[in-house]
Design a protein around this nucleic acid. Sequence first.
DNA 1: AAATGTGGAATGAACATTCATTCCGAAGGA
DNA 2: TCCTTCGGAATGAATGTTCATTCCACATTT
Lengths: 191, 191
Amino acid sequence: MSKQDKREEIVRAALELIAEHGFHGAPMAMIAERAGVGAGTIYRYFENKDVLIAELFREVEGKVYAVLVEGYSTQKPIRERFLHLGTGLLRYYIENPLEFRYLEQFYNSPFGVAHRRSKLLGNKEGCYFFRELFEEAVSQQVMKDLPLVLLFDLAFGPLFAAARDHILGFVALEDALIARTIEACWDGVKR
Amino acid sequence: MSKQDKREEIVRAALELIAEHGFHGAPMAMIAERAGVGAGTIYRYFENKDVLIAELFREVEGKVYAVLVEGYSTQKPIRERFLHLGTGLLRYYIENPLEFRYLEQFYNSPFGVAHRRSKLLGNKEGCYFFRELFEEAVSQQVMKDLPLVLLFDLAFGPLFAAARDHILGFVALEDALIARTIEACWDGVKR
DNA sequence: AAATGTGGAATGAACATTCATTCCGAAGGA
DNA sequence: TCCTTCGGAATGAATGTTCATTCCACATTT
């Protein structure tokens, strides 16, 4: 197994185990075993568990953004852009439940809070689509005149909740239902 | 300190520590210290940590319901009832951040998933308001014709997210903003 | 009233377990 | 042969739980 492969195996194993059992249910020894690697080997690739967790988040985030850019254009009308991003996100989540559940774990942890804080306060890139779109929508009075953060909550709160319920088997989100869910999110934010 | 007091002290200490640091950041020894009792004493009142966690949830849930029933009447129009429950919930959460953060911890854990499952599938009481209200609203065609679970997600997803953002200091939810947030939730579920 | 006895509650040191991290001998490539 | 990489046992810190002992309020006896 090449160096690169080994690293990828570690990341994949960590994703699976953390998504399924949470940070505290995924000991390094278990990650190593599933990756087919010695426990000490992980530390040749990642300084410690926190670094592994953060790196994993960056990888997942990157893949999500890659999906969202596809077919996205700031030329299209705001509502259409919103629907594109919303359905893109929701579809990605339910097609990649492991990554979704990992993100949930991450966001509901001190890591996630710190991340969110630095993203909202500091003007980091990322979230770019969303911030730009929402600010434009507010200034053009097509979205409600609410703080950006609340608009995010209105739009993505249901989206996350729906993805979770689908993955847990509480609802079967097929195409039509996904579209109607995102449209309902739009109803929440639109003026 | 009486027996009852001691029990309450334990519960209060557990609430504070778990809300602030999560289940894994609140060792029994620390809970005992904050409650002003010996570590072993906790086990005279609660069989083990899981039982303490579950009991704490039941108490918090009970207090929330108590607030919601106040002034609630199935005679009032559906929209008004929705706004009553929504603002009641949101206000309670931001006025009781410890309890809110505890609920978040609980829901985002195996306990919470199991709880949600038994509530949605089995026909447990509790959630009664909501289920009844939403079912009536759908049958009268004042809410969208979506699965109940998705309507819950649309209504409470933003609510939870907003409460979290308020508590983390990302937005200052004063009265007017609370009302407008819940109205936006209504826009999401209404037909 | 004082002294003694009793049973349940409280205690916290001790234990077993789990986990992240380290370390060093072995393996493998140049 | 030398040097890098690997593996997994060893380490030490942390945590949930237990249990032998202490404590105390009240009953009983003198």
